[in-house]
Design a protein around this nucleic acid. Structure first.
Lengths: 235, 235
DNA sequence: CGGGAGATTGACTGATCTCAACCCGGGTGG
DNA sequence: CCACCCGGGTTGAGATCAGTCAATCTCCCG
């Protein structure tokens, strides 16, 4: 990928042919206030917090964000991740509610903000854009339903195997075939919905059994077939 | 409520001022094929099954439907309920995917079907309708996120208390202050995400402690405050 | 070199699941 | 009319998965 302007150029934000905004006309795109460059968030920084009013969309240009809820006892439950091309915060914006999740960069990230009023305008005047948003919401909904069933019915072992496979599919591998995404043991536990120690023990077991290889936070899947079997995934 | 025609009159289906279809003009409403009366489903009958192609919306006029996924070992996980005024099946329709849930009447129900093509048309030509659908999807999404966090982090006891409170809020009470909705112990277990026996034991405990009263499937909440406390619900 | 975050391991505990037996009421067929 | 069956509900005992607590280790950083 090559940028003729200093990266990241703001105009690129919404003109990507794969972005949610692809159905907007140039005139419509111009309605988005473009005074500022995309915001930079350093690894660890919060984009928005549970309970705050956000009133707008966050479009991720680059980086990886974890989106999580904080449970009763302060434990995080990671709901999903967002990466380049994804949007965040539309649920609260559309529902006119406070954010029900916290959003935190786990890699340095560039993010564009679009005010909620404008998005709502687009929904009303541009049917294709509305349909696009609906499809995104429905996709998330389907994933959430799967998630519910998994957590309710599968063992921690099954879920961890499944999460590893999902992380591979969602973020891919680096040039040494390690998972591209780097998570702490605690974060893994907060996806799976278990204790950190349980993740550690199970990862050790998978390593012992040669299903995976571990170098610190870097994880390589050695035998996806077995993991798939362990996870009881349908396909 | 009074019906001048024999109940249920089909025209009432979409003209209710509270229905999703309230933003449609009369001309638009006429696009919906209205040859048939709403479909009647007897308690226990399936409206659609996981894996089938449904391609349309089901609008519930009357009755209660349970919407569930079937897990790896055949155990049901109830995702949500639908009752009068709710729609079902829009996720698959919008996503052009097969149904990811099964939908079964737990009370005798009347349901209207609207073909998917027409709904998609409406999304594109009627911004208010699109927004309405988006809001429904976003509402479900928020609830699903809560659900995930609860199942991942709370104990069965906490979740059961929470479910009882939710059932009261969602379906209300009958004239003797029992929960309006009637579920088997197994169905309760399939909401909470636990074994039937666990639900039975915990219900007995709640009864012993005078938090609830039980007559077969009929449950009366005697002390909501305590249940609320047990559930660790935020409000 | 001290401090702190994250990772690991062991021991213990206990909530929850599974299995199995049994009960109860309603419906059915002989 | 009665015996039987069946789905749902209950209860008990035992097994176990997974969480908690605590100690230790390993880096990495200032």
């Amino acid at each position: 990928m090559k940028y003729t302007q200093s990266f990241p150029a703001f105009n690129n934000c919404f003109q990507d042919t794969k972005s949610v905004f692809r159905h907007l006309s140039n005139e419509e795109l111009e309605l988005i206030p473009q005074e500022q460059a995309p915001d930079f968030y350093k690894r660890g920084e919060i984009i928005y917090s549970e309970g705050s009013r956000i009133n707008g969309f966050y479009y991720v240009m680059k980086g990886i964000i974890k989106i999580y809820k904080t449970g009763f006892d302060g434990k995080e439950q990671i709901i999903r991740f967002a990466q380049a091309g994804d949007i965040m915060g539309f649920r609260s914006t559309i529902s006119n509610e406070l954010a029900c999740t916290t959003s935190r960069a786990i890699e340095d990230s560039y993010i564009c903000f679009v005010p909620g009023d404008i998005v709502k305008q687009f929904v009303k005047i541009n049917g294709n854009f509305a349909m696009e948003l609906l499809q995104i919401a429905c996709k998330e909904l389907g994933e959430a339903n799967d998630y519910i069933t998994d957590i309710a019915q599968k063992t921690v072992r099954e879920r961890l195997a499944e999460v590893l496979i999902h992380l591979k599919m969602e973020f891919g591998l680096d040039n040494e075939n390690f998972l591209q995404i780097s998570l702490t043991r605690e974060e893994l536990a907060n996806i799976v919905g278990t204790a950190t120690e349980s993740v550690i023990r199970l990862l050790s077991e998978f390593k012992q059994d040669k299903h995976i290889e571990i170098h610190g936070r870097r994880i390589k899947i050695l035998n996806e077939k077995v993991l798939l079997k362990i996870s009881n995934l349908p396909y």
